[in-house]
């Protein structure tokens, strides 16, 4: 474990040195990589602090019982409806959905529901779908949504059941 971290840290330093050297020596590919890194970091820094503060508030204020009731093993089909609504209003992409899904699960949401949430936050985000429809046409967006949402739910249930049978446990403490 410790040596794994050491490798990661050395890779990170090598990367920084490479990008820094590229800027000093005017090496174009390295500069482009550095610019990509910078612009994506900025993009994520616009979202992540808000997302994590909301996660913090969620963990402090929302009772485990509430989550269990609406998204837990007893929630039935309405659990999936809730989770799709939640996914549809999530901002960002998968990288924001993972920590939220993790928190939901640690508060008692069942596995198939959080996988549906991850899927929904990828494909049903409302602002993004509006944007998509304006470039690709409403017909395209409708077909895409109607075809993908049921598939997301079904595969999430399959994956959730399989993991529950295998007594899968999410890694604690993230």
């Amino acid at each position: 474990m410790f040596s794994g971290n050491k490798i990661k840290i050395s890779i990170f330093f090598a990367y920084i040195c490479f990008v820094a050297a590229s800027f000093i020596l005017n090496f174009n590919p390295g500069k482009l990589i550095g610019i990509n890194f910078y612009s994506f970091s900025i993009e994520m820094l616009k979202l992540l602090p808000c997302a994590f503060i909301l996660i913090g508030l969620f963990e402090v204020w929302v009772k485990r019982k509430t989550v269990e009731k609406h998204l837990g093993t007893e929630s039935g089909f309405r659990g999936y409806l809730w989770t799709i609504l939640l996914g549809g209003t999530t901002v960002g992409g998968l990288y924001v959905a993972f920590p939220i899904a993790y928190s939901l699960h640690s508060k008692g949401a069942k596995l198939s529901v959080i996988f549906t949430y991850i899927g929904a936050s990828a494909i049903c985000r409302v602002p993004m779908t509006i944007f998509e429809a304006s470039f690709m046409g409403i017909k395209f967006s409708l077909i895409r949504l109607l075809a993908s949402v049921p598939l997301v739910i079904v595969t999430s249930i399959v994956l959730g059941n399989y993991l529950t049978k295998r007594k899968y446990k999410v890694l604690p403490g993230k």
Partner: peptide, 28 residues
């Protein structure tokens, strides 16, 4: 809540850095 937010953010930061490095290279 804010303390939880900061702690969680710091915990996952290495994974985010790995992703950013991958993204910057792949997009190039």
């Amino acid at each position: 809540a804010v303390k939880i937010a900061v702690k969680k953010f710091i915990n996952i930061l290495p994974a985010f850095l790995s992703m950013l490095i991958l993204v910057s290279i792949i997009l190039f």
